[in-house]
């Protein structure tokens, strides 16, 4: 993986400053959503081979959650977006931030 990651808030920083949480696409269901929705959210993953979106926490920097677009075969990092911005862009269906937005809208 790239040793330097460009944080939208802090600029170019060593990868070791970040902690990787995992898949950024599952969305938390409403509290009273049916058990199936909660099961899917907590336990099931698409686990695609290729380009994925992950939550990274910039622990050694701004401490913001970021969404990192990454190829999990080549380990290339393709884009880094603030998680709130990612979510807003996804919700409004606006492109330019991420292609995955349409799945989240």
């Amino acid at each position: 993986m790239a040793s330097l990651i460009t944080c939208p808030h802090c600029g170019s920083r060593p990868k070791e400053e970040f902690s990787i949480r995992g898949d950024a696409l599952p969305q938390r269901p409403a509290a009273h959503a049916p058990d199936e929705a909660w099961h899917a959210y907590v336990y099931l993953r698409d686990n695609v081979k290729g380009v994925i979106f992950e939550h990274w926490h910039h622990v050694g920097g701004c401490r913001r959650y970021l969404v990192v677009e990454r190829d999990n075969v080549s380990h290339d990092v393709l884009s880094v977006t603030d998680a709130a911005r990612f979510r807003r862009a996804a919700a409004s269906g606006q492109d330019g931030v991420v292609a995955a937005g349409k799945d989240l809208a």
Binding site: G22, D23, A40, L44, R45, D46, N47, V48, K49, N72
Partner: peptide, 18 residues
């Protein structure tokens, strides 16, 4: 490690991450 890839071929979404 490729369980999700082959599972996906039959439409399965599994409690697995690689």
């Amino acid at each position: 490690g490729h369980t999700s890839v082959t599972g996906q071929m039959a439409g399965l979404r599994l409690p697995i991450e690689t």
